[in-house]
């Protein structure tokens, strides 16, 4: 199974989780997801997800001026986003527990 298929379902959760640690702009969030182990994550997927979460009211944005580079739009969790993160995290935890139990013994730990 391709991990990009799995990512589609959990990218919202991953992005929310990354933003819980610290606000970030688009490419920064891409980098953080990759360094967290989601190597396959596509740039466009992250930007699209950010846009959708923002439209859905889970995120706020603010622009940070920069001296050398371009002004960057930072994304931050708001309370709706935090609630969504908690709920999704619970769903994921249950789901992943079920899957892990089902697949026990197949992959050597």
């Amino acid at each position: 199974m391709d991990s990009t298929q799995l990512l589609k379902g959990v990218l919202d959760l991953a992005v929310l989780a990354v933003l819980r640690e610290e606000d970030g702009y688009g490419y920064d969030i891409v980098r953080r997801l990759r360094s967290a182990g989601l190597d396959e994550v596509g740039d466009a997927s992250v930007y699209g997800t950010l846009r959708r979460l923002y439209s859905g009211g889970a995120l706020t944005t603010y622009v940070v001026p920069s001296e050398e580079g371009p002004h960057r739009k930072y994304y931050a969790l708001n309370s709706a986003g935090r609630t969504q993160l908690e709920l999704s995290a619970k769903v994921w935890a249950e789901f992943s527990r079920s899957m892990s139990t089902m697949l026990e013994g197949i992959v050597a730990a």
Binding site: G48, R52, S55
Partner: peptide, 8 residues
């Protein structure tokens, strides 16, 4: 296409 899909 990826952007469109991810943005719903």
């Amino acid at each position: 296409a990826e952007l469109r899909s991810a943005a719903g």
